[in-house]
C-alpha cells in the first residue's frame, strides 16, 4: 500500500529532476572534442605577414586565447571590443585564427576595428578550421603553456565569460 503511493511520487520526482537539469542547457553547444588535448599540429602562414610560416610549436610557452574570427562575421564585432580591452590591460595574450576570409578584407577589418592579436594564423579555405573542430565564427579556445586546450567558447566572448571562465584558466595554465 505504501509502495503503491510512493512509487508514482518517486517516479514523478525522478522525471522532474531529469527535466529540470535539462532546462537552461543549450543543446546547440557541443563539447569540444579537443578538450584536454593538445591543439592540432598545423603549419600555416600569417595573415599580416604574407608567406611567413607559423606552426603549432611556435605558440608554446605561454597560455593564450585562440580566437576564430573573420571580417564577414557579425557576432565577432560584439566580442571584439571585449577582447581588445583585456589585451590592452595586459591580461590576455590573444592569438587569432582568421577563418575563411579574404586577406584584404581581414586587414581592413582589423585596421577599422583595432588589432589586439599577438599573432594571426591565416586559414583562407577553412581547412585548418576542420582540424580545430570549428563550426563557425566566433569561437575561442583557452590554450595553456603546453599547448593543451583547456576550454572552448562557441559564440561571442562576454566580459562575464572572460572573468569567470577564461582568465582563471589562463592563470592556471601558466604553470
Amino acid at each position: 500500500m505504501i509502495m503503491r503511493l510512493f512509487l508514482p511520487l518517486a517516479l514523478f520526482f525522478a522525471l522532474a529532476v531529469l527535466l529540470w537539469s535539462g532546462l537552461g542547457k543549450d543543446p546547440s553547444i557541443l563539447p569540444s572534442a579537443l578538450l584536454d588535448k593538445p591543439i592540432p599540429q598545423f603549419s600555416s602562414t600569417k595573415l599580416r605577414q604574407p608567406g611567413e610560416p607559423i606552426d603549432s610549436q611556435a605558440l608554446l610557452g605561454e597560455p593564450y586565447l585562440l580566437n576564430v574570427f573573420a571580417s564577414w562575421c557579425r557576432s565577432c564585432l560584439i566580442e571584439h571590443p571585449v577582447l581588445d580591452a583585456y589585451v590592452k590591460r595586459g591580461q590576455l595574450k590573444l592569438v587569432g585564427l582568421n577563418y575563411r576570409d579574404e586577406r584584404e578584407a581581414a586587414l581592413s577589418w582589423l585596421q577599422f576595428h583595432g588589432d589586439p592579436y599577438a599573432e594571426i594564423i591565416w586559414d583562407p579555405d577553412g581547412r585548418l578550421g576542420i582540424d580545430f573542430g570549428i563550426t563557425g565564427a566566433p569561437e575561442s579556445f583557452v590554450v595553456d603553456a603546453q599547448g593543451i586546450v583547456r576550454y572552448k567558447i562557441v559564440g561571442p566572448v562576454s566580459p562575464e565569460i572572460m572573468e569567470k571562465e577564461i582568465l582563471p584558466r589562463l592563470r592556471e595554465g601558466a604553470g
Binding site: D125, G126, R127, G129, I130, T135, G136
Partner: peptide, 11 residues
C-alpha cells in the same frame, strides 16, 4: 547549406 557543411563535404 551551412558553410561548414560545404567544407566538410569537400573534405
Amino acid at each position: 547549406d551551412a558553410l561548414i557543411a560545404k567544407d566538410l563535404r569537400k573534405e
